[in-house]
Amino acid sequence: MTIERTDIEKLAELARIELNEATIAETTQSIADVLALVDQLQAADTEGVEPMAHPTDAVQRLRADEVTETNHREAFQAIAPATEAGLYLVPKVID
């Protein structure tokens, strides 16, 4: 699998990361190197092997449906850049 500069640009946009010219070239190269390793792994015969969703062979524990959290709004909002009327304020977003 090959990766192009345009793929990196698109991923950067989706991840809301701003990359400058030098970094785009560098990132394209690093990811291409990683994908080369993946290509080697692809050579392994996985016929009949169930894909895993998680590297550890463990099972998720579930919790009982109980309200255990209390209100800590004051503490959380003390470190927020902008709040008003109990709301977090963010740059205006409308689809």
């Binding site: 109990g86 304020l89 740059p91 409308i94």
Partner: peptide, 15 residues
């Protein structure tokens, strides 16, 4: 929920 009423040109978020 996003509230788009005017908060000085910003949006309010209720989580």
């Amino acid at each position: 929920k996003s509230l788009h009423e005017d908060f000085h040109g910003m949006s309010g978020i209720d989580l």
